[in-house]
């Protein structure tokens, strides 16, 4: 704090970590979204095997802490011949973990779509996939959005942990500055504000999506 010039200099250095945080968040959310959709839908199918596999995946990744998964991806996978860059390991762990939580959201949303809708698709002679794609999912997605927004923020918060496997994102940069300058307050306050801004931005985006996809559905639901 004594040296304002220096603070501005390393402040900029810390903010360069924001790019890695954004990358990690976007890629992990994308992986989580795809996995959540696939396993979530699998859990609502009639096939016992499909449900069992999906359930096993979800319980495994929700049951072991994301922190442990991250370390496993970075330190244990190389032992069986899969060497990942720190960012890849981060995306893998955060994506698989987020996907497990997300699939519960997808499952619940699909089950929450009215029974009459399902019966209508049978009456119209739609195949299972047609019914899912054209009738059930468009309505379920609106129900998923608020939970997905929260999940995306949880994933964004999880990216901070990736600093421990040497991804040079915000928290890692702040730690570097701390260990080299001994300055603590400014680095950590700076990254807290940055995380807060990112989370608030994501929140507004999800709100906008909710409005956009909610058109025509919210008005008739009573």
């Amino acid at each position: 704090m004594e040296n304002f010039e220096a603070s501005v200099g390393y402040g900029w250095y810390i903010l360069t970590g924001a790019w890695a945080t954004v990358q990690l968040t976007v890629f992990s959310c994308a992986v989580a979204l795809v996995i959540a959709m696939v396993t979530g839908v699998a859990m609502t199918r009639n096939s016992h095997l499909l449900r069992l596999v999906a359930r096993f995946y979800v319980e495994f990744f929700r049951g072991t802490s994301v922190f442990v998964q991250l370390f496993a991806a970075y330190f244990v996978l190389p032992l069986i011949g899969i060497t990942l860059s720190p960012i890849q390991a981060g995306v893998l762990a955060l994506g698989l973990n987020g996907g497990a939580y997300g699939s519960e959201v997808v499952r619940a949303a699909i089950n929450a779509v009215g029974r009459d809708q399902r019966e209508a698709t049978i009456a119209l002679n739609l195949t299972g996939w047609q019914a899912l794609w054209w009738v059930i999912l468009p309505q379920a997605v609106v129900l998923m959005l608020p939970s997905f927004g929260n999940l995306a923020i949880e994933i964004m918060k999880g990216t901070a942990v990736a600093s421990l496997i040497t991804v040079s994102e915000l928290t890692f940069q702040a730690q570097t500055v701390r260990s080299q300058t001994g300055d603590t307050a400014i680095p950590f306050l700076l990254i807290m504000v940055t995380y807060l801004a990112m989370a608030s931005l994501m929140m507004s985006f999800v709100r906008w999506l909710e409005k956009r996809f909610g058109r025509g559905i919210t008005s008739e639901s009573t």
């Binding site: 923020i153 964004m156 918060k157 999880g158 990216t159 901070a160 942990v161 600093s163 421990l164 928290t171 702040a174 730690q175 701390r178 603590t184 307050a185 950590f188 306050l189 990254i191 807290m192 995380y195 807060l196 989370a199 608030s200 929140m203």
Partner: peptide, 21 residues
């Protein structure tokens, strides 16, 4: 909301490294 939207790890660093100052 501010606590909810920032990572736990950063909050821990804050308590552990900044408060002693």
């Amino acid at each position: 909301e501010a606590i909810r939207r920032t990572p736990l790890l950063v909050q821990l660093y804050f308590l552990f490294y900044v408060l002693p100052d």
